[in-house]
Design a protein around this nucleic acid. Structure first.
Lengths: 246, 246
DNA sequence: ATGGCGATTATGTATATACATATTGAAACG
DNA sequence: CGTTTCAATATGTATATACATAATCGCCAT
């Protein structure tokens, strides 16, 4: 999320947004270095000839975005960037494939309904035993395998999934829109392909693969755990930067 | 950035924040599904017995966070989640290592000052030729190699780097705080270790590695390009979720 | 010196009010 | 019947005002 929304498209930006982008620019350009005290609210309201509330709106947003730190009685200060946070966009695989200009094909490989094993519960971070749906799917770009999907769905949280075959539709798009998620966690790592994955992706066993695992919660209930495995050549994750706090 | 900042620690939350978290919870839990019209500002201000401005503050934040969409004359509606965006925190390697409870060691392997080659310019997305500093560094966790760093610094943008040996301090921490960055781009992928990397990380050639590349700009000038290579077992990137707009 | 205390100051939150703006629905008109 | 116009409505922005809260400075007494 960019802080300054519709940056000077024309002259039709609100005052507090102009104040925000003015200050934000001075920080980004380095004119106001970390630690620098930016003008007090009453000074800015005099400069811009507006009320303190308007300035306050701009500065509050800058503080929430982590660009400045506000201290009562002392003023507002440019923050030192702490941890770099990048926004990683994780799209539906169909969209990723089609962005490459290749035809997308989906295939359901396997589907098992079972009582959750200890391993299932570990993956889903599930406390008690209950029914789960285990799925294995292939995603293709043209003729080549693009990604292999191994997914667990917590049927206690998403009972309707038990009646879905997932032949015509992939579980990802099926879940999106049906289940409101509140939280998710991604783990990204490199692995060597085991025999199973090697066969699925049509690569040599031991070849490097990128693994993206996602665990999703909805209102504190585990919903799904999915592991996507990509052959090394086929995929690069791109993350754009956000100047955020630490 | 979580939308509800200090969620009900005690009763000491501001009213607009309570309104925000009330609504946010109803959306997250699915009680208010995508497309649902949430109460008008004047209705909420009656419910909470507060002014419309207070409600407006809460709803504006929800809109900016992408949870709701506001339409003049029609009201505010729960948005359908579009693209999933996760926040990827990329820390300094020292911090990552120490988080594992292992002693951290840094080592500068090589340092070359040169006129930028065509490859350098491609990596930095640099237009004209100019001096660059090429660095190669090792990061160790205990006795084991943890990550290998290959870095280019654009000396046109960061002239002072020419006088730094980078023996005592790693280029990452050196650059942070000295150069205000405004933008960065990350590329994450899996590769097979070539002989050079294999030797540096003390792994077999062809073994899978996680590569994180980062390109950084400051006020539209390319500053640095860095490639971190991790042995597969040593590292997993963790990304937390943000319910963001698309 | 030093420890406490009150005054000062900047931010944090909330209010009532005002007018602008976009959009919709209905009435008026050709 | 279709089009234009207009009023109603919800949000968007800005104001002046008020009081709360936290942090700091300086004064004063010990």
């Amino acid at each position: 999320m960019s802080i300054v929304e519709t940056a000077d498209a024309e002259g039709s930006v609100s005052l507090h947004q102009r104040i925000l982008s003015d200050i934000s620019e001075r920080i980004m350009s380095g004119a106001w270095a970390p630690g620098h005290r930016i003008p007090f609210e009453h000074e800015l309201s005099a400069q811009y000839n507006c009320s303190r509330m308007t300035v306050n709106k701009a500065l509050s947003q800058l503080a929430k975005a982590g660009l400045i730190e506000r201290r009562r009685r002392s003023g507002s200060f440019v923050r030192r960037p702490q941890s770099q946070a990048a926004v990683l966009e994780i799209h539906d695989i169909r969209i990723e494939v089609e962005a490459l200009g290749l035809p997308y094909r989906y295939e359901r490989v396997a589907r098992h309904k079972r009582r959750s094993s200890a391993e299932d519960r570990a993956l889903l971070e599930l406390g008690a035993a209950g029914p789960v749906l285990a799925l294995e799917c292939g995603h293709f770009a043209g003729e080549r395998p693009f990604a292999h999907e191994q997914r667990l769905i917590n049927l206690t949280a998403v009972a309707e999934a038990a009646d879905e075959e997932f032949v015509a539709i992939a579980p990802g798009p099926w879940l999106i829109g049906r289940v409101p998620w509140s939280e998710a966690e991604h783990r990204i790592r490199a692995v060597a392909a085991d025999r199973h994955i090697a066969a699925a992706l049509d690569i040599a066993a031991g070849a490097p693969c990128l693994v993206v695992e996602r665990r999703t919660w909805s209102a504190d209930h585990p919903v799904t755990h999915v592991r996507f495995t990509y052959a090394a050549e086929s995929h690069t994750l791109v993350a754009r930067f956000t100047p955020s706090q630490g």
